[in-house]
């Protein structure tokens, strides 16, 4: 489709930057999932009309400067502590939307206690958990979610269960607790998967607004740089291998259980 603009013919835009996504270049590598995740969040903040009542908590890790990309109030947090910081924010502003945005090292390793206890208290916050199975920012070390056999700079021969244990399934772990309201896992490997993940994220934010309770959406994303794959290969790796270890879908939904 084309439109007349003066003498020049230009394409009618079918892609626009959502207003909540700041017009800056991100520092993410090509093929990284953070870009898509930021966009999904920005779209939801705009579509749900909550940009002006949302406070984000950024992690330590690749998304450390997430606050440079979304046009909302943001706090940083020490490594692993976003759920504790979010607890303080939310308890003071119970009517605002408070979310944390965390990677696997932040959420499932150094911040495991904060994650479990915020979930167990049923803090009315939403956690967006970006699981790419690797420490990206520090150069590709083993994460708590690295698959058995997967190579990293600290598991050069591939992760060995005998030595380092097994990848931690956070949604399933939190599902042992009474309090959480919504636990789900998505991925970004295809347009269909992206739309499904966005639906899960929307549900998490809606539950928070309805004061249903704690929600976490885990998203399997790729790290082509440290996985030493092309972006295409890494998406296929998620579909064929990673999602076998971390099954996609809704793990807990208290409202669905009620219905």
């Amino acid at each position: 489709m084309t439109a007349k603009q003066g003498e020049q013919e230009v394409a009618t835009p079918i892609y626009r930057r959502p207003p909540a996504l700041l017009d800056v270049l991100t520092h993410y590598c090509p093929g990284c999932g953070h870009g898509t995740m930021h966009r999904l969040l920005a779209e939801l903040l705009d579509e749900m009309g909550i940009r002006e009542q949302t406070i984000g908590v950024a992690p330590v890790g690749c998304a450390v400067v997430a606050y440079d990309y979304l046009d909302i109030d943001w706090s940083e947090a020490a490594h692993g502590r976003p759920p504790a910081v979010a607890t303080g924010l939310k308890r003071i502003h119970p009517d605002k939307v408070v979310f944390t945005y965390q990677g696997d090292g932040d959420l499932a390793s150094i911040g495991m206690a904060e994650t479990i206890h915020a979930a167990n208290r049923g803090e009315n916050i939403s956690i967006f958990f970006i699981n790419n199975g690797i420490y990206g920012m520090t150069g590709g070390q083993m994460a708590p979610t690295t698959l058995i056999g997967q190579k990293s700079s600290t598991t050069p021969g591939g992760r060995d269960a005998e030595d380092t244990g097994y990848p931690i399934r956070m949604c399933e772990l939190l599902n042992q607790l009474e309090a959480p309201a919504f636990l789900a896992r998505g991925t970004l490997t295809s347009p269909r998967r992206v739309r499904e993940t966005k639906r899960l994220m929307k549900k998490a934010l809606s539950y928070q607004m309805e004061k249903v309770g704690f929600s976490m959406v885990e998203v399997l994303t790729s790290c082509p740089t440290h996985w030493r794959m092309t972006p295409g290969e890494s998406l296929r790796y998620i579909e064929q291998t990673v999602s076998r270890v971390f099954p996609l879908g809704v793990i807990k939904d208290v409202k669905a259980a009620e219905e």
Partner: peptide
């Protein structure tokens, strides 16, 4: 006010960080 028994000293100080960032005396 709000009282939270934190899961750890580390969580407690970071909750204070959040509450203070929210504008409250903490």
């Amino acid at each position: 006010g709000v009282f939270v028994q934190a899961e750890s000293e580390v969580a407690a100080i970071n909750m204070i960080y959040g509450a203070s960032a929210a504008g409250a005396r903490a």
